[in-house]
């Protein structure tokens, strides 16, 4: 029989080594599989996407900007752009790079896959919203357009991605988004968020941390040169104008559309009655539909009926039935307090 101490140490080492290798997402195997991708193809596609972004934002692209975008040196960037040009995807003129028609549709295909995948993650998985973009950055290079099309069909051909960007159609058309940046609104304006820019990641995470999401109504309280103060969901938020430019809003002119004075369902006490005004856009996918199927739609009367032993969940009487909701969801359902 071997010495137990040595066995213990050996066992410990083996278990840790196996864990380090096989651990989901963070293990060496997962990292290796993620890195075993076609880095050449990826660089080409990323560069192409960059040229497309330039065109979309009416900027001009150069080899230098590609180098910056790909975090690489000028030589590599020149190589990439030469390859793209030889593939007939871009043309250059006077140091500036332009998309060919073929290049544009190639780029739109990548964008379609990317945004569909983000939609998939948001509505059909439990992946956190801060990870949607980075996951889609990987999938966009590996998923074929046919796979993406059948995924879209399964999801009911969604129109916009969770950040509010339109998803290019199967025919590779990209509809206009519209709206203005948050820093273009004036004091007293009311608008609805229609898009949150997901790059750079740090800024996006900050916006998410503030509880902002698409469909949310915001009200500009004060606007100065160095900061914008606005109210969203009953909370006051302060943003620097440069960060505010990452938020696109649609100004609400029609007074009837303005939701005022709503309270989250979770704040109702047993015996109080509320009328459902809306469900926050942060509740997505199956969960949102399930709530609506159960009768949580605007106009429904809703009454907390029974509190569970631990205080969460709470059962509500909705449309004649008793349905238990968790606080994380009832926080995102807005009601108007009744009598």
């Amino acid at each position: 029989m071997s010495d137990p101490l040595i066995s213990l140490i050996l066992g410990f080492i083996i278990v840790s080594a196996l864990m380090a290798f096989f651990f989901p997402d963070k293990g060496l195997l997962a990292i290796w599989r993620r890195s075993a991708k076609d880095s050449k193809k990826e660089a080409l596609e990323d560069a192409l996407k960059h040229v497309y972004d330039c065109e979309y934002n009416s900027l001009s692209c150069t080899i230098r900007s590609i180098a910056g975008h790909l975090h690489t040196n000028m030589d590599k960037a020149a190589e990439v752009s030469a390859r793209l040009e030889s593939m007939g995807l871009i043309t250059s003129n006077n140091q500036k790079l332009y998309l060919t028609d073929e290049g544009r549709s190639y780029a739109l295909r990548i964008i379609r896959v990317h945004r569909l995948w983000e939609h998939y993650l948001a509505d059909h998985s439990s992946v956190k919203e801060t990870e949607w973009h980075s996951e889609a950055e990987i999938v966009e290079h590996t998923m074929t357009i046919e796979e993406a099309d059948s995924l879209a069909a399964k999801m009911g051909n969604p129109l916009i991605d969770p950040h509010g960007d339109p998803i290019p159609t199967a025919g590779l058309e990209l509809p206009e988004l519209g709206g203005v940046h948050l820093n273009e609104l004036e004091k007293g304006d009311i608008g609805r968020i229609i898009h949150l820019e997901d790059e750079p990641q740090a800024v996006f995470s900050q916006l998410i941390a503030m509880g902002l999401h698409n469909g949310m109504q915001i009200h500009i309280i004060d606007k100065r040169t160095d900061r914008i103060i606005f109210e969203a969901n009953g909370e006051e938020n302060i943003l620097a104008p440069t960060l505010a430019a990452n938020i696109t809003v649609k100004k609400i002119e029609d007074q009837s559309e303005i939701l005022d004075d709503f309270t989250p369902l979770s704040s109702l006490q047993v015996g109080e009655t509320g009328i459902v005004k809306g469900i926050s856009r942060a509740l997505r996918g199956q969960q949102r539909r399930r709530l609506m199927d159960l009768g949580v739609v605007p106009g429904s009367k809703i009454t907390p009926e029974l509190v569970s032993r631990a205080g969460n969940p709470v059962a509500y009487r909705i449309r004649g039935a008793s349905v238990a909701l968790r606080k994380q969801h009832s926080d995102l359902i807005f009601v108007e307090k009744g009598e």
């Binding site: 399964k154 999801m155 009911g156 199956q286 539909r289 399930r290 609506m292 199927d293 159960l294």
Partner: peptide
């Protein structure tokens, strides 16, 4: 089912 309108 509660509904016939969803993707389940």
């Amino acid at each position: 089912t509660y509904s016939l309108l969803s993707t389940s």
